[in-house]
Amino acid sequence: MTMQIADSVSLSASDAKARAKARADAAAARDNLRTEPRAVRIVIIALAVIFLTVFVVLPLVVVFAQAFSRGILAYFAALAEPEALAAIKLTLIVAAISVGLNLLFGVVAAWAIAKFDFPGKTFLITLIDLPFSVSPVISGLVFVLLFGAQGYFGTWLRDHDIQILFAVPGIALATTFVTFPFVARALIPLMQEQGTQEEEAAISLGASGLQTFFRVTLPNIKWGVLYGVLLCNARAMGEFGAVSVVSGHIRGETNTMPLLVEILYNEYQFVAAFAIASLLAMLALITLIAKTVLERHLDEGQDASDH
């Protein structure tokens, strides 16, 4: 009797051991299903890291290394050059104008597209994407065609003494055109997903159109607006092609930062060129960080509306 009990105990113990082993094997098999062999994993990850290093990290490091190659004083001296200061100022002005305009147009366009049905809506959406699909140089040339001395409005503009090409208005116009899709593109899907029910609720509660827009529509899209503005700004400050065509490269007057970088580089002023370039690189880094933060907010907004 006692033997029998002991037997069954030892049997169950070995059973348990066998079960544990079977489970471990199964778990290992499952892991194997999910992941590649160790060697393959290492090779793939190494390739990715090398690629990123060569194409992203290295250029960034080189920019800063070159900028500081003659020491920190030379760096700041290069930035304090009147030409450099003029370029920074112009870039900020142009970015402010084009971001401001695109904020306005982008919100209005997204609002119209997402909240209303009208004929030609698909065409309008395609039109908004146009600047993305056209080479920036062509975009710049369009403005030369319109406002240049031989352009459609050239004579009229000259008669009225209005300078658009080779001046701030032209650069701002070209930049605005090239960066137009950012705000609208960030907002259209967001607003379409949110639908029109909250607006309808607001109106039926007695809110006017403006009250509805400022109290309901805008607060709902504020993170999307910031996201669009951020990307729009980054592109506006970094735009080269379109601006290059309309700017005229007048030193100290119509050179934006990217244009000045090219000029300085061609004149072998490497420290100055890379000093300006380092500012643009920093802008890119800040943009990336801010973008990550904003994306988290946007996701949260989406989660909240998921219920």
Binding site: Q197, E200, A201, S305
Partner: peptide, 11 residues
């Protein structure tokens, strides 16, 4: 008016 999906102001 009470909407099917409530349409409460989410913010």
């Amino acid at each position: 008016f009470v909407f099917q999906h409530y349409a409460l102001f989410r913010h």
